[in-house]
């Protein structure tokens, strides 16, 4: 499993990739592996608002549903349409399969998120339980 350094991470295993006032959001390799084969992704509509720490959608395997939590607040500018018919893309390449793009409301929120080294330490601890 790999975790790119340019991403920021949440404790709920989402990543966010900032690009100025915009950012892409997805789930980590760790999350996709824990979920197993992903069969469906429920995502918000373009134009809707997401709030840091709140659910913005869900991801389903055959026998489990997990909420997706927003790493930061913002307005959804784009939704990855490919995932409607090919959710397995997340399993194949979680790091590069973005789910939504947002216009950040407060880019400073990203400072509260984990860096790659923090995240790697976090999942090691979590996996140890």
């Amino acid at each position: 499993m790999s975790y790119p350094a340019e991403l920021k991470y949440t404790k709920e295993h989402e990543w966010i990739k900032p690009d100025g006032d915009l950012a892409a959001i997805g789930i980590t390799d760790y999350a996709q592996q824990a979920l197993g084969d992903i069969v469906f992704v429920e995502l918000p509509k373009v134009g809707s608002e997401i709030m840091a720490g709140k659910s913005f959608g869900s991801v389903e395997s055959v026998k489990a549903v997990s909420d997706l939590y927003a790493p930061a607040s913002g307005k959804v500018t784009e939704v990855n349409q490919e995932l409607a018919t090919a959710p397995e893309k997340i399993n194949h390449d979680a790091n590069r399969t973005w789910m939504i793009r947002v216009e950040l409301k407060n880019p400073a929120e990203l400072n509260t998120l984990m860096s790659v080294s923090d995240y790697e330490r976090f999942i090691q601890e979590e996996g140890g339980h």
Binding site: F40, S61, K63
Partner: peptide, 12 residues
């Protein structure tokens, strides 16, 4: 599509 159902999604 069992994720719609109570034994998985419980109160949701």
């Amino acid at each position: 599509l069992a994720t719609r159902e109570q034994h998985i999604r419980r109160e949701k």
